[in-house]
Design a protein around this nucleic acid. Structure first.
Length: 256
DNA sequence: ATGCCGGGTCCTACCCGA
């Protein structure tokens, strides 16, 4: 089983990239973030042509998540459980397919909106920890993946790529990410590549890509059962070199 | 560290991303 997560930074801008990537890689599942459009504007036809069915939680201008799948699935959640009901940010979708639970998330960045913006990120991570625990309790194969906007450790950021006070690297942010690992989830990339320098994001500015000033902020977390089946995990760096790329590349994971 | 890029929208200067 092949699956990937990819922050596309506007699905309307990146439709040709995603289409070509699906044709070449043929994943069973693709989790998308930062659609930047309402659900009705999602270019589903381009992906249906290739045999993929979509589930979309869209929002005008900002955020937005979707799942493309070749196998049948059911949508179980269209928002992160535990958030206030008036929270309209499109950041979470959860499905079940072949007995496996798949959660796709776009975690708040936390750098805008001052103290309240960062507090929102931490609260979101607290709700995520609760959901992650409940899913382990349910004892089904579970995968939680997406753009976490968390750079877990110093080796996940190039020298000079990010300020030490940035919301992606603050101790409170990292502690909340580690809590997911302590609960029993496996970081798929680090499980297979404990020391390698592997980035998933390069800023558009300041020549971040040519200078390889990247960050590892897109992650695939696996429940113990799925971790046993992990055979490959890697960012697809080649996507960052294409014309008009997203600032993130796909992270591809293969399970036996 | 911001706003050098790139996407969005109240269409055009400004917000957001990380």
């Amino acid at each position: 089983m092949k699956l990937a997560t990819w922050n596309v930074n506007s699905i309307r801008q990146r439709e040709p990239h995603v289409r070509a990537w699906l044709e070449r890689v043929e994943p069973d599942l693709l989790l998308l973030q930062e659609l930047k459009c309402e659900s009705a504007a999602f270019p589903a036809g381009a992906f249906r042509d290739l045999g993929y069915t979509e589930a979309v939680v869209g929002q005008k201008s900002y955020n937005g998540v979707a799942i493309l799948a070749r196998r049948p699935f059911t949508v179980t959640h269209r928002a992160l459980p535990g958030l206030p009901p008036d929270d309209a940010q499109a950041r979470y979708i959860e499905i079940e397919t072949d007995g496996t639970t798949v959660a796709n998330l776009y975690l708040p960045n936390g750098n805008s909106g001052g103290d309240a913006g960062y507090a929102y990120k931490l609260a979101w991570m607290d709700r995520l920890a609760e959901r992650a625990a409940a899913l382990l309790q349910a004892d089904r194969p579970t995968l939680i993946a997406g753009d976490f906007n968390v750079c877990p450790a110093p080796e996940d950021a190039a020298q000079g790529a990010i300020s030490p006070t940035d919301a992606l690297v603050r101790p409170e942010t990292r502690a909340r990410f580690r809590r997911l690992l302590w609960q029993g989830y496996t970081d798929a990339i680090r499980a297979l590549h404990p020391r390698e320098t592997l980035y998933t994001f390069w800023d558009y500015q300041a020549g971040a890509w040519p200078r390889d000033q990247g960050l590892r902020i897109d992650h695939v977390l696996l429940s113990p059962e799925l971790a046993e089946r992990l055979v490959a995990a890697a960012p697809d760096r080649a996507e960052r070199d294409r014309a008009q790329p997203s600032d993130h590349v796909p992270v591809l994971v293969e399970l036996a």
